[in-house]
């Protein structure tokens, strides 16, 4: 089994999704901020300011590399060029963590820049496990796999998402990235209980927790339809779900994700402080 022995672990402290416009704020006064997450694909150029900034940040903070384009849930083979780019990034940066999504985004050599859903069946389980093994073997690292936001269901699914993820950790040795906003969004959209999902989740495999904001809409029947937009503050029910999770899991690295309509640094600093208080609550 591949595992991390030569890189720092992510601390069980608040982290934030890094945006270039916050570079000076973060370097000047990071407060309780303990680590940073970057989207792998934004650092796959050959040089220039993005890589220079990343090298500076990595001297100060543990870095989590979060891929958004590998299409691990894809029907086809993984894009070996892209896998090679990930391997290169992880090799030179030696980040504290590397994660990707339970989703697909590429089909027939076309990339859709979104995290598309897959049914949970014996067949898709086997395919995803094969892909995770290939990723971990190529990148040379254990990876974390993130639970998706669901807007719809597949009639063909035969397994719950939590069983699917647990089985993947057992087959591949991968860890999990638990996005509690995604849990809340999916549970609302699919009329299930977010607490029951956490109760069923293999929390021992969780290496990182994500928190983000969502938009509210309705489907054609008038049922609530929440959309994972990463463009707003984390809502109170998601903070409550975080508390519920941390009480069961113990302290974990917590990430504030804010990717669209990105606010000024003080707004993110408030979210980071709130995550810090959630951690203090269970360690006090």
């Amino acid at each position: 089994m591949l595992d991390a022995t030569t890189h720092p672990a992510l601390p069980a402290r608040p982290g934030v999704g890094y945006k270039a416009q916050h570079y000076s704020d973060i370097m000047e006064d990071s407060g309780p901020l303990g680590w940073l997450e970057i989207h792998a694909e934004n650092y796959m150029g050959d040089g220039g300011r993005p890589l220079a900034q990343l090298r500076h940040l990595a001297e100060r903070f543990p870095i989590s590399v979060h891929g958004v384009g590998l299409s691990i849930g894809g029907e086809g083979n993984l894009d070996t060029d892209h896998l090679g780019r990930l391997k290169h990034l992880v090799s030179w940066l030696n980040p504290a963590s590397f994660s990707e999504h339970l989703a697909w985004s590429t089909h027939d050599s076309h990339f859709f820049n979104d995290l598309l859903p897959l049914p949970y069946t014996a067949k898709t389980l086997s395919r995803v496990a094969t892909h995770i093994n290939q990723v971990q073997d190529t990148v040379g690292r254990r990876m974390l796999l993130e639970n998706p936001s669901s807007y719809l269901a597949f009639a063909e699914s035969t397994m719950s998402e939590t069983d699917f993820l647990r089985e993947l950790t057992q087959r591949t040795g991968c860890g999990l990235l638990l996005d509690v906003n995604n849990v809340f969004v999916s549970a609302t959209n699919l009329k299930t209980s977010p607490q029951a999902y956490i109760d069923d989740f293999p929390l021992e495999a969780v290496g990182e927790i994500h928190l983000g904001g969502h938009d509210e809409d309705e489907d054609e029947t008038g049922a609530p339809l929440l959309i994972d937009s990463h463009g707003k503050a984390v809502v109170d029910p998601v903070w409550a779900l975080l508390d519920y999770t941390l009480a069961k899991s113990g302290p974990k690295p917590l990430l504030i994700e804010w990717d669209t309509d990105v606010p000024e640094w003080p707004v993110l600093a408030d979210e980071i402080s709130r995550a810090d208080r959630a951690l203090a609550l269970i360690t006090s």
Partner: peptide, 28 residues
Amino acid sequence: GIVNPDGAAASKRFDVYRNNVAVSLSDA
């Protein structure tokens, strides 16, 4: 085969993906 939680067709739910893809690529 794509359904809402009651097992019925889910076209507005599918539209979330249509919209995400078109908006994210247009934004790029």
